[in-house]
């Protein structure tokens, strides 16, 4: 179409995130008492002093043996936050709610009407061809497999996840998953994940929001360390704690940040180009450049034209429809939300 030649990306283009988890609170109890988890005691954050050893590379001037002895005798005392289950509780409960908001693919700000029309058509095309079913099922799998437990998933010998669809405080539907039976590397799922996926699909495409109540029970053993979120503090002053854990309200309630949960839930991108060394990393979080912060790497680099911006621009401006896999990725990025305008 001739009109399309002139179409340009809106300079202001923004999307709200459509998967909106709350923070998760950590509670401790017994595996057998899972039904009463609402009455379980919260996991507190405690401070502890640790004696660091001198292990950093010493500057030449500090390599004088006498000085080294003095340094070692002057131990590197640090305070850190820790959290652990009490000895009489073998199970960690991680509880949060997930809101799934309607209107996936509809921008919250867009300053170009032609572009917005094209976007609307494109999203409608995707919905009629694929629907949000594939994405929704992958989100469902990430609830079922307990990926959002992060490190807390590693040491558990049993993990049960209960997902309830609630309305005005009433449970309308409920699914129970054995998380360890679900792989973190694929999204095969089962009957239940497909059911849950359909509910999420309906919410993303519909115009009413969905509320899911999620509780994960991880049996990791009494007294074991658990892992709330760690705070990112840039300007630490001397004597400050070297590790600060997140809590809600007061230090009796250790918690996991909502953004950490969101990152796990959108870890569904298996469609990125293979890494140079051929290593298979499994799913990565949906990010415009496929970046994985922990690895300091980006798996959708602009030079390969498989990043979000290249894919979206070509799809909308040049009518070069991406592969089904990359269409999923683009839509998942819109669901993730962000400011994507091209203001140069």
């Amino acid at each position: 179409m001739a009109k399309n030649d002139a179409l340009k990306t809106a300079s202001v283009l923004a999307f709200e995130r459509k998967l909106d988890p709350s923070d998760a609170v950590l509670r401790a109890g017994r595996w057998a008492d899972r039904e009463q988890h609402a009455q379980w005691l919260a996991v507190p954050v405690r401070e502890k002093s640790v004696r660091g050893t001198i292990s950093n590379r010493l500057k030449t001037k500090d390599q004088d043996p006498a000085k080294l002895d003095a340094a070692i005798e002057n131990p590197n005392l640090q305070t850190v936050d820790v959290a652990a289950l009490p000895h009489d509780a073998d199970t960690l409960a991680v509880h949060f709610t997930l809101r799934v908001l309607a209107g996936a693919g509809i921008p919250s700000a867009c300053n170009n009407a032609d572009y917005q029309d094209k976007l609307k058509q494109t999203v409608a095309g995707y919905v009629s061809e694929h629907g949000f079913g594939e994405l929704a099922h992958r989100y469902a799998c990430n609830l079922a497999n307990g990926r959002f437990l992060w490190r807390n998933r590693l040491k558990a010998d049993e993990i049960e996840i209960v997902v309830s669809q609630t309305k005005a405080g009433k449970v309308e539907q409920q699914w129970t998953f054995n998380a360890l039976a679900h792989s973190l590397r694929d999204f095969q799922g089962n009957e239940e994940t497909r059911e849950l996926g359909q509910v999420i699909d309906a919410a993303l495409a519909g115009d009413d929001y969905l509320l899911l109540d999620v509780v994960a029970f991880a049996r990791i053993g009494g007294g074991q360390e658990v892992f709330p979120s760690q705070e990112l503090i840039l300007e630490r002053t001397r004597g400050d704690k070297s590790k600060t854990l997140y809590y809600i309200g007061n230090k009796d309630n250790a918690a996991i940040h909502s953004q950490k949960l969101g990152n796990a839930l959108r870890t569904i991108d298996t469609w990125y180009p293979a890494a140079d060394d051929g290593a298979d990393l499994g799913p990565i979080a949906v990010e415009p450049y496929g970046s994985v912060t922990t690895q300091g790497a980006a798996y959708r680099q602009p030079k390969e034209k498989k990043d979000f911006y290249n894919l979206l621009d070509r799809w909308l401006l040049k009518d070069e429809t991406p592969s089904a896999a990359n269409q999923h990725f683009v839509m998942a990025t819109l669901i993730r939300g962000g400011v994507f305008g091209d203001a140069g």
Partner: peptide, 8 residues
């Protein structure tokens, strides 16, 4: 009153 069904 909206009595809870799954909660104690």
């Amino acid at each position: 009153r909206r009595a809870p069904e799954d909660r104690s």
